[in-house]
C-alpha cells in the first residue's frame, strides 16, 4: 500500500524534478527586488521617481504573469518532450504544499504593497515594527514547509536564512536585498536542477 501511495505521488514529484518553478520563482523574486530597489533609490520628489513607482507596479504585475507563462513555456519546450506530459489533478484543499505556496505568494504581494505604501507615505516606523517581521516569518515558513513537503533541504536552509537576515535589514531596502539574494540562490538552484533533469532525460529517439 505504501508503494501505491508513492506511485500516486509520482506525477507531482516528476513536475518538481525539473527545477523550472524554482528557476522562474527565483528570477521573479530577483526582478521584483531589483525593480523596487531602483524605485527606492530614485529621488521620491522627482517626476522620474513618481513615474517609475507607477511603472514598477506594472512591471511587478508583468513579472507575476510572466512567471506562469514562463513555467508553461519552459515545460512545453524542455520538460514534456523529454520526460512526458502530465497534468496534475485539481489539488485538494488540505494539501500542505499548496497552502505554503499560496502563503508565499500572499507574503510577497503584501511585502511589495507595503514597500510601495512606504515609498509613497514614508511611514517607516509601522513597517519596521510589524510588517517586516511578519514578512520574514511568512517567507521563512512558506519555504520551510515547501522544502519539507518536496524534500528539498536547500529551501529549508533558505527559510532559515530569510529569518536570520531580518535583524540586519534596514527598513525596506533590506527586504529588497533579501528578495535579490534569495531570488538569485533559488534561480541558480533551479538552473542546476534543470541541467540535471536534461542530462538524465535525453530526448526520445523519434523526437530527437
Amino acid at each position: 500500500m505504501e508503494n501505491l501511495d508513492e506511485a500516486t505521488r509520482r506525477p507531482m514529484r516528476y513536475l518538481d524534478e525539473d527545477g523550472v518553478p524554482d528557476l522562474l520563482l527565483g528570477l521573479n523574486s530577483l526582478l521584483v527586488g531589483v525593480i523596487f530597489l531602483i524605485a527606492f533609490l530614485l529621488p521620491k520628489d522627482s517626476s522620474i521617481g513618481r513615474i517609475y513607482i507607477f511603472a514598477a507596479q506594472i512591471l511587478w504585475g508583468c513579472c507575476i504573469f510572466g512567471m506562469r507563462w514562463g513555467i508553461r513555456t519552459l515545460r512545453r519546450k524542455v520538460t514534456f518532450p523529454r520526460g512526458g506530459y502530465v497534468a496534475l489533478a485539481n489539488c485538494k484543499v488540505n494539501s500542505v504544499s499548496l497552502w505554503a505556496w499560496r502563503f508565499l505568494r500572499v507574503a510577497v504581494v503584501v511585502a511589495v504593497t507595503l514597500m510601495t505604501a512606504q515609498l509613497l507615505m514614508k511611514n517607516e516606523g509601522t513597517l519596521q515594527r510589524f510588517a517586516l517581521p511578519m514578512i520574514a516569518i511568512g517567507m521563512s515558513l512558506a519555504m520551510s514547509v515547501a522544502g519539507w513537503r518536496y524534500k528539498l533541504p536547500y529551501l529549508q536552509w533558505l527559510g532559515l536564512f530569510a529569518v536570520c537576515v531580518y535583524p540586519f535589514q534596514r527598513g525596506g531596502v533590506g527586504l529588497y536585498w533579501m528578495l535579490i539574494g534569495l531570488g538569485t540562490v533559488i534561480a541558480v538552484g533551479g538552473v542546476v536542477r534543470l541541467r540535471g533533469f536534461i542530462a538524465s532525460h535525453p530526448l526520445p529517439v523519434e523526437t530527437a
Binding site: 501505491l4 500516486t8 505521488r9 506525477p11 512526458g84 506530459y85 502530465v86 497534468a87 496534475l88
Partner: peptide
C-alpha cells in the same frame, strides 16, 4: 496508481 495522481498523462510519461 500513476493516473490517479494526475488529471491526464501522455504515453511517454507512463
Amino acid at each position: 496508481a500513476l493516473l490517479s495522481g494526475a488529471k491526464e498523462a501522455d504515453f511517454l510519461f507512463l
